[in-house]
């Protein structure tokens, strides 16, 4: 065997090793999926841990009330959003747990937890919950190469998990780092639990973030459209999981363009704020503090 042959066979072996390594290990997957799902206690503990490591500063600036979206195809009557009342919020963190249970947010392995790399869609910053602001001029959507991050006509910055290729560009471009990347296969690691059947578990390698409880809005719309096919749906009466869970009612969900919505009413009498980084990006989720 001459040298060239030797090199050739060496590289062949290496490539085969590579291919073998890449093969999905079915055996392992089967064993892992038989693990029992994590207990609720672990989710509660993780929220406590995340809150203890939360960043302390939240730099807020005043913003005006969000108007209709400027993107083409946007609905002129619906733009959903939230307001977090900083005068009422005491930073108890019940919203985080409620969100995790509603949206099946997985746990993270211990290694990630020590780095502070949690999957929580809502996090504490400066003693107030911070989640995706659903910017009207969302920087994450502009840079997503596949269009997996996209705006719904109703003003929600939505995420299509199946179209996400995991380039993580959106995560880098989010000024408040509201986007979370599935570094781990939570399902096979036994870290995910489907508390809510209506929200799918996310695969490894995709981005996720606050969806403003899109499934609740969709259910309400379907039910509404079935009952009154001809009238305009404004999403009245829907609440997100975090808003529902807040003991002080500090989180108000609603439709910015519906004058009857609690959100629009709140905005009339209060001063609106947004994190400095996203204030110029037309955020739908804002903070309120003080009275006019």
């Amino acid at each position: 065997m001459d040298r060239r042959e030797f090199i050739k066979s060496c590289s062949l072996v290496a490539v085969m090793g590579l291919l073998f390594g890449c093969r999905k290990s079915e055996l392992l997957g089967d064993i892992a999926s038989q693990f029992s799902v994590p207990e609720l206690k672990r989710f509660e503990d993780e929220v406590k841990l995340a809150m203890s490591r939360a960043k302390k500063s939240l730099d807020l600036v005043r913003v005006s009330a969000p108007g209709p979206l400027k993107i083409p195809g946007a609905s002129p009557v619906n733009r959903f959003g939230m307001a977090i009342d900083l005068d009422l919020c005491d930073g108890c963190g019940k919203c985080i747990l409620a969100c995790n249970l509603e949206n099946n947010v997985p746990l993270v392995p211990a290694e990630d937890a020590t780095r502070g790399r949690f999957m929580h869609w809502v996090e504490m910053r400066g003693n107030a919950p911070l989640m995706c602001a659903h910017c009207g001029d969302a920087p994450c959507e502009k840079v997503c190469p596949t269009g997996a991050a996209n705006h719904t006509p109703d003003g929600i910055s939505a995420m299509m998990y199946k179209r996400c290729t995991g380039s993580r560009f959106c995560g880098a471009n989010c000024p408040v780092h509201a986007r979370k990347f599935n570094f781990n296969d939570a399902q096979s690691l036994g870290l995910a639990r489907q508390f809510n059947k209506e929200v799918p578990l996310r695969d490894k390698g995709v981005m996720e973030k606050c969806s403003l409880c899109l499934h609740r809005l969709q259910n309400d719309r379907l039910a509404f459209k079935t009952r009154n096919p001809l009238s305009e749906w404004r999403g009245r009466g829907v609440k997100t999981a975090c808003a529902e869970a807040c003991p002080k009612n500090a989180i108000v969900f609603g439709n910015w363009l519906d004058p009857e919505s609690p959100l629009a009413r709140l905005a009339k009498t209060r001063i609106l704020y947004a994190p400095r980084e996203v204030a110029a990006l037309d955020p739908s989720v804002v903070f309120v503090r003080g009275r006019r």
Binding site: C10, V15, G21, C22, F183, D185, K204, G205
Partner: peptide, 18 residues
Amino acid sequence: LFLPGLFALGYAVLEGPS
């Protein structure tokens, strides 16, 4: 250099960005 690197690459693709 390449052969150990190839294993690292395979591992990285399998394991993902973590």
